[in-house]
């Protein structure tokens, strides 16, 4: 007898060369989710449990939007889903809602797929009447996502590494300018760990509260495994239940980056295996060289 409801895919859109948006049926989660919260999905029996931030939700339609960066075997399988396919398990909403301000100015900084996480935060701020400025970045024009959506909520500064769209350079350069000009009461930074670290380093001397969203390795998402532990202000916290958002000035980013590499060799093997080298893999399965 089945224990789960299958979650059908109702829409799919390629946002950048490796980022895909899926609209998925999950009515309970669509009704109660808040900005900053995430789900854990498991595509099929024997699949990995993958944490994904809820980028948007439509309570009336009973759908949530997941934005997925394809990085390994499991995420590749997820982004290959088409309307009519289904995800076996979705659990959530998990984690705490984003800390909000009631008025003033917010600076929202997104890098890569993190921009999708930023979007519901900016939406909620905008709804409260907070002045929102967004700075989003990508390698080049085709890697920039959610620009249109964020423009509806306030000014947007786009940064690309090659200058093919917006200004050339890092999001932190643009952030420096925005902070120098008008300042901000709060900064939200979501993206690659080095980007979030750079933003935190930029805002720390200015004393501007900075919220970052962390995505460490996790399994259950309910505090049970402790795999997602991060050091925040010299205390160990579990990102799944204590986070996923923390005070960026307190996070030990070096440790987080390091812990994100624990399974790198396994991921490469799984990807190689999915590409067809599995028989050899099975023969030498064991511990990765360290």
């Amino acid at each position: 007898m089945p224990f789960c409801k299958m979650h059908s895919i109702l829409g799919r859109q390629q946002l950048s060369p490796n980022v895909t948006r899926l609209k998925v049926r999950a009515s309970r989660i669509a009704t109660i989710r808040q900005p900053g919260q995430f789900v854990i999905v498991r595509l099929a029996e024997d699949a990995e449990r993958i944490p994904l931030t809820i980028a948007d939700a439509d309570p009336a339609a009973g759908t949530i939007t997941l934005v997925i960066q394809s990085v390994g075997k499991s995420t590749r399988e997820l982004v290959a889903l088409k309307p009519g396919d289904a995800i076996r398990d979705i659990v959530g909403p998990l984690g705490h809602a984003t800390e909000m301000i009631a008025s003033g100015r917010a600076l929202c900084i997104g890098g890569g797929v993190g921009t999708a996480v930023l979007h519901p935060i900016a939406q909620s701020l905008n709804r409260r009447g907070v002045h929102v400025t967004s700075i989003i970045g990508g390698r080049s024009r085709e890697w920039v996502i959610f620009e249109e959506e964020l423009r509806r909520l306030g000014e947007v500064v786009v940064c690309t590494d090659d200058g093919s769209h917006g200004r050339k350079g890092f999001v932190t350069d643009a952030a420096k300018d925005v902070l120098a000009m008008g300042g901000a009461d709060i900064v939200y930074a979501v993206g690659p760990v080095p980007m979030m670290r750079a933003v935190a380093n930029l805002t720390r001397p200015l004393g501007v509260r900075t919220i970052v969203s962390l995505n460490p390795v996790m399994i259950d998402g309910t505090g049970m495994c402790g795999g997602c532990r991060v050091t925040v202000g010299s205390k160990t916290r579990f990102a799944c239940v204590d986070g996923p958002e923390f005070d960026g000035h307190q996070v030990n980013f070096e440790e987080l980056m390091d812990r994100l590499t624990i399974y790198r060799e396994f991921e490469q093997r799984a990807t190689a295996c999915a590409d067809g080298g599995c028989r050899l893999e099975a023969a030498v399965a064991g511990r990765p060289a360290q």
């Binding site: 699949a47 399994i219 402790g226 093997r269 511990r287």
Partner: peptide, 28 residues
């Protein structure tokens, strides 16, 4: 690892069958 994580990876997620299962665990 916490024992919870170590055992969950192996028991619930069948990490001992990796790469035939999808969840890894450090063998040691």
């Amino acid at each position: 690892y916490s024992a919870n994580e170590y055992l969950t990876r192996i028991n619930l997620m069948a990490a001992y069958q990796f790469p035939h299962s999808s969840t890894p665990v450090l063998h040691g």
